[in-house]
Nucleic acid binder design. Structure first.
Lengths: 334, 334
DNA sequence: CGTGTGTCGTTCAACGTTGAACGAGAGGAC
DNA sequence: GTCCTCTCGTTCAACGTTGAACGACACACG
């Protein structure tokens, strides 16, 4: 009844447990005839290797952990889906955690996932800053998603947020927008992504010779649809009259579009909207949403490569992006 | 440099490894004074228990696996988010897998997650039927999400799909709809969820004395937005002229609404739409989407309870649902 | 005939932890 | 003084696996 072990198989064939181990792992020397017999016995008893014993002996678990703020956010869900798929292809299983963007949860995770040992940790931090990781003692490889200002001893993978934000803003400029609002600035909290995207927005305007109107930069509490809707309502009620909106992620953009539609403001006719992340939902919204499309496949593959890289390669690794052009930015110019 | 073990801590304090183990786990007898000294040493060396050794010894891993068709589908992402949160509260970590709805992947997962031992498996099957699980040898507890026709030796947790579908259809009837289309039937493949929801749809119509028009039942290949859009275009091009649509999940509904909007058909004025799952996206679509809201929190809590229940309690366990009423079903009657 | 070289399989020990069994000493009861 | 109980801590073995080291046997070469 108990789960069969190597020894059970070995006794049945009349060899040593180690020989069965060799057959299972393809190590050592085993004659074809014997290997055949062992393999038959393996399926007969339904042998399955004991992961715990294997890990205890080898030090490797075949698992990596992913920690994101919230899995229910489509961008993180799609990221997780992509990572799990990539990992499955490499015979690695993924353990998922949620941090809710809380700094102490993020720090705790960076120091190990509960009691479970993993071969590496991929962390998408919201609140954690570089200094929080200085005191880290756990030796588990760690890869961070997203940029961080300041040097860090850990590898980072990210799209070039500033360049991408700049390109998104330039796309709005290219269709004739001149009063472009930015939704997603964050006054408090060290959300560096927001800072970097804001920098890209500013850079695009400056390069185009358009003065930055600070009142067009709208702060948000979070990056959810409700925050975008709230920001759009602020825009409407304060008479700012922008002709374009760059939202720092797609959820903000979708929330904003929802509020605009409710107020009878037409997108893209009255105001063009572009988001960031290119989540699937944006292909089916009304109107469909233009967005910055980070190369997620490259992102997750790079993250795993870096996690398993020996020796570790600290530093920033950027992946590509494209601007996906949909109905929400079909301006008068087209 | 190597990770400290119980023995390292023990040597430092001058006691046996077992005593340190007792302090860590609160077992056995240790004087307050000695416990204090051990605890100081524990933090000094930064001891972290070795999960593999613990699991090898105790047989428990503190991990459960969740397998869903696709994590990128909002319903499953929200389900996973809810499950991870519930599990974290119980000091359990969750390992996530994707099956792509393929029967052989689902079967493989039901027989163990790769090489990794877990304390239990929660599987949301698409293609797998009860008979596929007969030959299961692995003793890991298994809980299935979703209903299955026919008896099964495993616990199931689900909303009552037929009752919920009936309620959704009745909601459309209550606002005056009389020609109600159903999007989501599946001709081939054993998607029992689709069958059950279709049965609820039929039951509601029959009870209202409305003959079922088979041409209003639209089959789909999958449950994505694109399938819903395709079905809506079929409706438009074939001149079926329904006044209500019950889509078997929210993605189908959102895809359908998108196609309707593109064709200039007004929702809810020309046709009312209701979905199933109540994903967050439906609160921000244009118009907002009415839907069946399964009690996901109860669902995941029940699933974990059943997974850990000793002895196992096979059979069907249903959780509640409500009909959430939004703009897409604000009919002329309101 | 000794000395390599290659093939095939074995035994041994160890990974870090914890249940079981076993003292050792103190205190009380008879 | 003997027996019992209670407290506090120890030693031992085992969970299932695999790297390292070690035969044993066959064949070829000088």
């Amino acid at each position: 009844m108990a789960r069969p072990t190597l020894k059970d198989v070995a006794d049945r064939v009349g060899v040593s447990a180690k020989t069965v181990s060799n057959v299972v792992n393809g190590t050592g020397w085993v004659t074809a005839e014997l290997r055949e017999r062992v393999q038959v016995a393996l399926v007969e008893v339904g042998y399955r290797p004991n992961a715990a014993a294997r890990q205890l002996r080898s030090g490797r678990s075949g698992m990596i952990a992913l920690a994101v703020p919230e899995l229910s956010q489509p961008y993180f869900a799609e990221l997780a889906a992509s990572l799990v798929r990539e990992a499955q292809g490499r015979m690695i299983t993924v353990l998922v955690n949620q941090t809710d963007g809380l700094a102490d949860v993020e720090r705790k995770i960076s120091e190990g996932i509960g009691a479970t040992a993993v071969d590496g940790i991929i962390l998408s931090p919201l609140a954690l800053s570089a200094s929080d990781l200085e005191g880290r003692r756990d030796g588990t490889p760690l890869v961070l998603l997203g940029e961080h200002i300041g040097t860090s001893t850990f590898p980072h993978v990210t799209v070039d947020n500033t360049a991408a934000a700049k390109a998104a803003t330039q796309h709005l400029l290219s269709i004739g927008c001149r009063r472009i609002a930015a939704i997603g600035a964050q006054d408090h909290g060290p959300n560096e992504t927001a800072l970097l995207r804001l920098a890209g927005y500013r850079a695009a305007l400056e390069e185009a010779g358009i003065p930055v109107d600070e009142s067009l930069i709208l702060p948000v509490d979070g990056f959810h649809r409700a925050d975008g809707a709230r920001a759009a309502r602020t825009i409407l009620s304060s008479g700012l009259r922008p002709d374009g909106i760059f939202a720092f992620n797609d959820l903000l953009a979708l929330g904003a579009m929802h509020a605009l539609a409710a107020a009878g403001v037409g997108v893209p006719d009255d105001v063009a909207v572009i988001g960031f992340d290119d989540i699937e939902e944006g292909q089916y919204s009304t109107p469909t949403l233009s967005s910055v499309s980070p190369n997620t496949g490259e992102l997750v593959a790079t993250a795993i490569d870096l996690l398993l890289a020996q020796p570790p390669e600290p530093g920033m690794h950027t992946v590509g992006f494209t601007i996906t052009h949909r109905a929400s930015t079909k301006g008068p110019a087209q």
